[in-house]
């Protein structure tokens, strides 16, 4: 198949970017979207041009590195699919595909389609953990956990930190990302101990980093490659509210 591409090119964070148009022939529908870009880059390099910078690593949908805004959707037109898992058979012959980087104040562009998502690490550093030292854990089965609760915690824990929720949200809010981590720990007895402090610290950090507010648009859930539910956002709201109302002074 032949396709037309319109790709955002930007030399670095401080220069202005623009779209560039490419035509690509003999694309196999069996190619993944990123293999298609590899194919484009090979032609660009051999033609003496600079290849398109895009981020990727595992290429099997689990590391969360890849993330392109394709034809108006983070990770492209297929639901529950990361960019690397998306294949060209999802596109039509002759189609024009517009590829943009994640757009958010909190995710500045580094080069072309690569953005800086370290804001997520900063939120995690603010409290996305259980305060326990190596060696002090009790025997694992001393903490029985209801299967349904444990499964639910798993559903929240599958987040790959790709940032599609922020990219999809009209307010570039990071609520789904933060809520997934807050909920995973709040559900489990191991994490419950410090749930009130955790949610306040993580929300405070999220606000500080320039993400927008949540307006319950639910685009995040729709475009999350792992299908994380907005119910976790409600759970975080709940945790936050009770933390604010019940926490003692000095916390």
């Amino acid at each position: 198949m032949d396709i037309k591409l319109k790709i955002w090119r930007q030399k670095n964070a401080s220069t202005k970017g623009r779209f560039e148009d490419y035509e690509l022939r003999d694309v196999s529908p069996e190619m993944s979207f990123l293999e298609m870009l590899d194919y484009l880059n090979k032609q660009l390099i051999e033609g003496g041009k600079e290849p398109v910078t895009f981020e990727h690593d595992c290429r099997e949908g689990i590391c969360g590195t890849c993330g392109l805004y394709i034809n108006g959707r983070p990770h492209g037109p297929q639901q529950h699919t990361t960019t690397c898992e998306l294949h060209m058979r999802a596109f039509k012959d002759g189609e024009t595909i517009v590829v943009e980087p994640w757009r958010s104040k909190a995710f500045p562009i580094i080069k072309d389609l690569a953005v800086d998502r370290s804001a997520f690490d900063k939120i995690m550093n603010a409290g996305g953990f259980v305060n326990i030292d190596t060696g002090s854990a009790p025997e694992a089965n001393n903490i029985p956990i209801n299967k349904k609760i444990s499964d639910r915690a798993f559903d929240a824990a599958v987040c790959i930190g790709c940032g599609a929720c922020v990219a999809a949200c009209k307010n570039s809010s990071a609520m789904l990302f933060v809520a997934a981590k807050v909920s995973q720990f709040a559900l489990l007895p191991q994490g419950k101990v410090e749930a009130a402090e955790r949610v306040q610290r993580m929300v405070e950090k999220m606000d500080e980093l320039g993400f927008g507010f949540c307006s319950n648009t639910y685009a995040c859930e729709f475009d999350c490659p792992k299908g994380i539910s907005v119910e976790f956002i409600a759970q975080m709201n709940r945790e936050f509210l009770s933390a604010k109302l019940c926490a003692h002074k000095g916390h």
Binding site: W8, P74, P77, R103, S172
Partner: peptide, 18 residues
Amino acid sequence: NNSRARPVKYYVAQGSET
């Protein structure tokens, strides 16, 4: 706050179901 969170808008309108 929300209008500040994305200073550069997308070229293609968001196509997510919301």
